[in-house]
Amino acid sequence: MKQSNVWTITRKGIASLGSRWFYVCIYFLLIILGLIFSVFYSYGSREEGLIEKAGVMDLVVFLDQISGTTNHSMLTFLAIPLIVSIVHLLVQYQERSNVVLKIGSRFTLWQTHAAFAVIVSFILTVCLLFISYVLSGLIVGFDNTWITKDSILYELLGDKQLFSSVVPYVSTGRVLTVVFVTKFLSFLLIFFLALFLKRFIKNIAIIFIILLAMSGLDRTGMVPFEFFTFFASLSLEDWLHPVHIYYKCFYLFVLSLFLYWITGLLYEKKDFLK
């Protein structure tokens, strides 16, 4: 099969979700709005005066690793439900007998799934970043407060002398780039993990249970190391030691690659007649 066919089938796969993309957008917008306001709810009541210093970056990627539109809460409440649902609908469409016959090879079928995952992850990341940045900016203004001393970042810094060393890493462009890369890789990881699990489990509710349990387990710290959505989220520590961000990206990339490889192998052995 020609390489271009992968893209044609992927494009058809995306189009096959049809009106469901509308519901995806509604859920997407609702959760983003909720996540923006939840920063105000949780920090407005907890520490007086702190939330008044909130800037656009705080709403996009709060420093506690949980809040904000691109941190752990987003991955749990938005990314996992959305991606697992999309994967379910995709597999249901792409693995119908007539589509499988048209594709002709298991390898190409898996390639179309992988291409779909990459494209949709990219689109979701761009939309997430754009919408959350614009909405947050409209609420608190587009100034990056992190580079000034009148910011939550400065308030939360234990050692204030570290501030000057952090500033170069928290310019608007750098923060958005880091958030883009980590979120893109996180979405990709969730996509491949969902596709991997979908290979064995038909019921997406069970896939949900597994992924949410993993996400919850990661956050509770019951496992001695972070390994999933909590690891993919950014905290103050990461901005203080930017090398952590490289580790995170490397880990997410390698794990996604491993899942791509192993699920590809499983697809090679898949029996479509059963």
Binding site: Y27, I31, Y41
Partner: peptide
């Protein structure tokens, strides 16, 4: 999904 949306949208 309804549970999560309500959880995120409504103050804690």
């Amino acid at each position: 999904l309804v549970f999560m949306a309500l959880d995120v949208l409504v103050p804690f």
